[in-house]
C-alpha cells in the first residue's frame, strides 16, 4: 500500500502540514518496498487560487492508495480526488509523519 502525507519536511520525523492545497511537501511511503519518496509542492504556495486542484493533480500523478492530511481537502480538491480511487484520512494535526502513520495504523484517524 502506498500512503501519501502532507508534510512540512521529507523525513519520518518531519511535522505534518495540516493544509492540503498549500502543503509544503507531499511525502509517499510505500509499505511493500519500505521506500520513502517526496515531492516539493512549494510552487503551489504562490498560487492565488486553485492550490487545492493543483495539489489534487499531483496526488493523482503519485497514485497513492491512502492520503493522510490535517484540515482535509477543500471542496474543489475533494471533487477532484473523488475521480481517483483513494481513501482520505484527516485530523493529523501537530504531529510528525511517523506519529500520523502510527495513528492511521491504529485506526485513530478520521476517514472522510
Amino acid at each position: 500500500m502506498k500512503i501519501a502525507f502532507t508534510a512540512k519536511g521529507t523525513a519520518w520525523d518531519s511535522m505534518m502540514d495540516p493544509r492540503f492545497g498549500r502543503t509544503m511537501f507531499i511525502v509517499v511511503y510505500d509499505e511493500q518496498s519500505e521506500t520513502f519518496s517526496s515531492f516539493d509542492n512549494s510552487v503551489v504556495e504562490n498560487e492565488a487560487h486553485g492550490a487545492g486542484t493543483a495539489t489534487a493533480q499531483k496526488i493523482f500523478e503519485l497514485s497513492p492508495d491512502v492520503l493522510i492530511t490535517g484540515n482535509g481537502p477543500g471542496s474543489h480538491a475533494a471533487q477532484a480526488l473523488k475521480q481517483i480511487n483513494i481513501r482520505i484520512f484527516t485530523e493529523a494535526h501537530n504531529m510528525t509523519i511517523k506519529q500520523a502513520f502510527e495513528k492511521f495504523k491504529n485506526g485513530e484517524l478520521k476517514e472522510i
Partner: peptide, 20 residues
C-alpha cells in the same frame, strides 16, 4: 489586490506555527 483568502491563510498558519 485580490483578497483571495491566501493572505488570510498565510497569517493564520504563521500564528499556528508560533503558538505551537
Amino acid at each position: 489586490a485580490d483578497n483571495s483568502g491566501k493572505l488570510v491563510a498565510k497569517v493564520k498558519n504563521e500564528a499556528r506555527d508560533i503558538a505551537f
